[in-house]
Design a protein around this nucleic acid. Structure first.
Lengths: 240, 240
DNA sequence: CGAGGACTTGAGCCAGTTCAACTCATGTGG
DNA sequence: CCACATGAGTTGAACTGGCTCAAGTCCTCG
């Protein structure tokens, strides 16, 4: 769903009409784009940077329910409030347009509405995936799953060619990662360093890792899907 | 989103065309409607009973990522597989139709597609809500949140009239509830009986509770939204 | 160079899981 | 109609993964 998912696949005239009605805005780390329980006036797309979608309990505990990367859409359409706060996780540039304007465009271009429906369906899949992670997996499995998802994200292009050095760039701080994985910075730190000790990965710095043994990582994740994937990759490498 | 959400709001001719292409099928508790990672051939609506959407880890741990009640739609459109299994949680009757047929109807009736988009957006909201529950809340808070959601579900009709006796019917077994709340049957049992001891609710039987103190329950849930709601209800009762 | 923030590491503690025993309701077959 | 098996739910007791708290290190920036 990432990598300019929405921009692609949309006809030029539609895209131009979106551009005409939008403006680019910049946000610094921690800036609020939309507050929780606040009216959604704008929708838009991430140009560069990372947005975090988060929800808060009455005593301040927070859960990140999604990270938006360049190309992803943000903002709740057809509803005034969505009960998620949107904040910049780093220096971020957005293309923003009026919600009502965008909803009107949806009615005008069925192709656009179809595209939005598809992307929402993918978001729901991701959310359900994350429920499995939060509800069933222990910290090590959560970290392993997250790393494999990051690997998958840059995957498609590189996967077809040589496997090459699998270097992961974590797009957010440890604090945000903890809120995303439903755990603490300390537990994540311990898990990552244990993976380093075991030789599953090499720690370049706190935000960059080189995956040395993706099969082992897949087994540690407890996720059937990754275990199958990595097994296939392994066979392919052996054959080559 | 429940209570024949999709059936309502759809024009008669569209509804007739759906009916013409669908058939009713019955499932017994534990029956599989669609397996995990299995091709989605059918989509449809729940007529009566309860469906559970669940995901499984390689060692068998399961998370229920959604419960579908009468009126809810099931089946992943625009994608062959969705990686969630759909099973009957009790005696359940479905109205089922071919996925391709339904997708064709979506193109033919923009009104229907709009309706589906809206319902998917609501599902995503629910999913994000559940991520907060699974990621941040302790067992007592999860149980309280679940009970309040059940109360809300039957709420709208009764809320406007007299508050009346607030009796909750839990639609699933303890085992399913545990898999939904990301905990164990034992922990749920302890939480419910503690609520009974505290006088927050009266246990009628293991699936029926009468809520005696919804304000207290709201405070125990840690959810700002419920705390506000219940506070308002309380004031309204005092005024009356 | 000093302050502050991000990350790591260690140690103790506790919520919730696990395991096991029990109750209770339901259904089945002799 | 009763004996018995079966499954769902409850309760108790022990164990433990991960949280909390505290003390570091390291890096960045004014």
């Amino acid at each position: 769903m990432h990598g300019c998912s929405l921009c692609a696949d949309i006809d030029e005239p539609v895209w131009q009409e979106i551009s005409r009605n939008s403006r680019v805005r910049a946000f610094s780390p921690g800036d609020t784009v939309t507050g929780e329980a606040e009216d959604t006036i704008f929708v838009g797309f991430v140009i560069s940077g990372v947005l975090r979608l988060q929800k808060t309990l009455s005593d301040g505990r927070q859960q990140i329910v999604g990270l938006l990367l360049p190309g992803d859409m943000f903002g709740r359409i057809f509803s005034r409030t969505s009960d998620v706060a949107i904040e910049a996780a780093c220096e971020t540039r957005l293309c923003q347009l009026n919600r009502a304007t965008f909803e009107a465009l949806l009615g005008k271009y069925p192709q656009l509405e179809r595209r939005i429906l598809r992307s929402q369906l993918e978001r729901l899949d991701e959310a359900q995936n994350w429920m499995l992670l939060l509800g069933c997996q222990n910290v090590m499995e959560r970290v392993a799953t997250f790393l494999l998802l990051q690997l998958d994200r840059k995957g498609p292009e590189e996967r077809h060619g040589a496997p090459g050095p699998s270097i992961i760039a974590v797009p957010v701080s440890r604090t945000d990662l903890a809120a995303y994985l439903g755990t603490t910075v300390e537990s994540i730190s311990r898990a990552v360093h244990e993976l380093g000790r075991k030789g599953v990965l090499r720690i370049i710095d706190s935000r960059h890792f080189e995956i040395l043994d993706s099969r082992r990582l897949a087994r540690l994740s407890g996720r059937t899907e990754f275990e199958h994937d990595m097994e296939q990759n392994f066979r392919r490498e052996l054959a080559a």
